[in-house]
Design a protein around this nucleic acid. Structure first.
Lengths: 294, 294
DNA sequence: GTATTATATGAGAATAATTCATGACGGATA
DNA sequence: TATCCGTCATGAATTATTCTCATATAATAC
């Protein structure tokens, strides 16, 4: 496929997006203050460039093809991002405010339990916690300091390793006590809980030589918080790193039944502005983070 | 500010992005196979439209202004998304998959505890849970059924009320036992925990006639999960609806010390495809949801 | 079948992007 | 400080793209 070699005609995306939203070229034309003909030409041009039919025109009303629908979702979001980004360019930022963005599970299971300390350590700050999804989003959240999982570089930002992970399966002790034998093979009778697209489990299974294993069932959640909660309730086996699981391992509500882990699966990184442009608070905060996580 | 009224000249973004990446218009020109002049014109055009200087040209090498840097981050990733989206247009989607998107706290504190039932009730589905942030995002997550907080309409989707909320402050019983008197005024000595921009608390305070109240401190988190966790740990008072708080109220780890609530603050809604295009499973799932939540 | 509504199409007009030729400016060099 | 070099800016001319206009075509409803 040669798509992607070519540059996408960005301008036609405006027409495509409007047409997709209204499911009507006429409406789209109205919104953009051009003629229906212009929309038609633009959409056609885009289809030609991509080599994919985007709309079905067989009926009276157009409808998105599956390909069109997927592109529409992506483009809609991207355009919205751009618009919002462009609109907020000249906004000022309040000084006493400090925002840290981190993966939800990191926030919930690592940061939140340490908030007491944090409030004491930085008594003058108004603290804001934001989400930094594990599936790395298209736009870096606006934050003074971002903790992200995975070595993804952002233009004009500094990235620094924070901590390496040790991925291991975890489950409820109750689930385990029912079973005598303890081998990876037994997972075939259980539910595997994923908070990614299956990558972590698949890697782990191949490390223990069971890449062909078919579990009783798969279940996919959006955050590690949910994955661990499901595991804690005895639904099945989750797979996560120690920074996050240690909270429940500590209380005894989860156990890690297998010794084998994925020690080099991926790491946590810190994203900040570059040295020069970085405020002192950010540096202090980073130091605090590193001390506590060590 | 009138930015945003105008449509952004998408085509110039290509030039801007390349120039920002190389920090050189000449390089950018080379990459895009045009002349340096073309890049210069385009960047200038973009700056004019946005009314913001994007580059500093005082030195020998151009550099992004703070505004330029922010736009660059947004645009860079948005363009990448579009490119990737366009390239992967002809991939297939798997049928036995059922995705439900809901606010993180709803997923974690309402859905997850009922997953056992859910797995029994729908034994043949591969369940996926996605996030639907409370601050309603620009693009509806791709899901068969979305639970959202607030009556926000989406083009070509069906919206139906699911449940009304009853917002009340909650805190740890430990926090409360230290205090004798129980009046909204005492909140001035405590930390207020927000999972929005302060709206819920501000409304509640005005209902109890304390709109002027200055608490000891404010603290902002991205999800209700974190807010409730902080409350549970005794950090301060969170403010949430009963569907979500009932989990911890049930275990006794949180209490709702004030009788006064915000009963009409906002509601949960279900977003699905319209009747015609909706699969049976979605209908069954919705029925299950409604029965359980009643 | 006819009216109606919606999209497609081709040619020309309008607009926008690009080039070309040149100017301007900062930094390096001697 | 004069000169050179590399980089970006600018205006007019050129080229390419986008849009409109006037119809054509197709599906639907009556």
């Amino acid at each position: 496929m040669q798509i992607g070699q070519k540059r996408i005609p960005l301008k036609s995306l405006h027409s495509f997006e409007a047409a997709g939203r209204h499911l009507s070229m006429g409406q789209a034309a109205l919104e953009l203050s051009v003629t229906q003909s212009a929309i038609s030409h633009q959409v056609r041009h885009l289809e030609d460039q991509l080599g994919v039919k985007l709309f079905d025109r067989s009926k009276k009303q157009i409808s998105l093809t599956p390909e069109g629908a997927r592109l529409f979702a992506v483009v809609g979001k991207a355009l919205e991002d751009i618009k919002l980004g462009a609109m907020s360019l000249d906004e000022e930022t309040f000084a006493g405010k400090f925002t840290i963005a981190a993966p939800p599970a990191f926030t919930n299971l690592w940061l939140v339990p340490r908030v007491g300390e944090l409030l004491d350590r930085f008594p003058d700050l108004e603290l804001h916690f934001e989400s930094m999804p594990r599936r790395i989003p298209s736009v870096l959240p606006e934050a003074d300091l971002v903790v992200q999982f995975g070595k993804h570089n952002w233009p004009r930002k500094r990235i620094a390793p924070l901590a390496v992970t040790d991925y291991k399966p975890v489950c409820s002790p109750r689930l385990l006590s029912r079973l005598g034998k303890l081998s990876p093979g037994m997972l075939k009778d259980h539910v595997l809980i994923h908070d990614d697209d299956g990558e972590a489990w698949s890697q782990w299974l191949s490390v223990v030589g069971k890449e062909q294993l078919q579990p009783k069932r798969h279940m996919y959640v959006a955050t590690a918080i949910d994955a661990l909660e499901l595991a804690r309730l005895g639904v099945g086996f989750a797979m996560n790193d120690q920074i996050i699981t240690s909270y429940w391992l500590g209380t005894g509500e989860l156990i890690a039944p297998f010794r084998q882990g994925l020690s080099a699966y991926d790491s946590y990184y810190i994203i900040t502005a570059h040295e020069g442009q970085m405020s002192n608070i950010v540096g202090e905060f980073e130091t605090w983070l590193r001390q506590k996580i060590a």
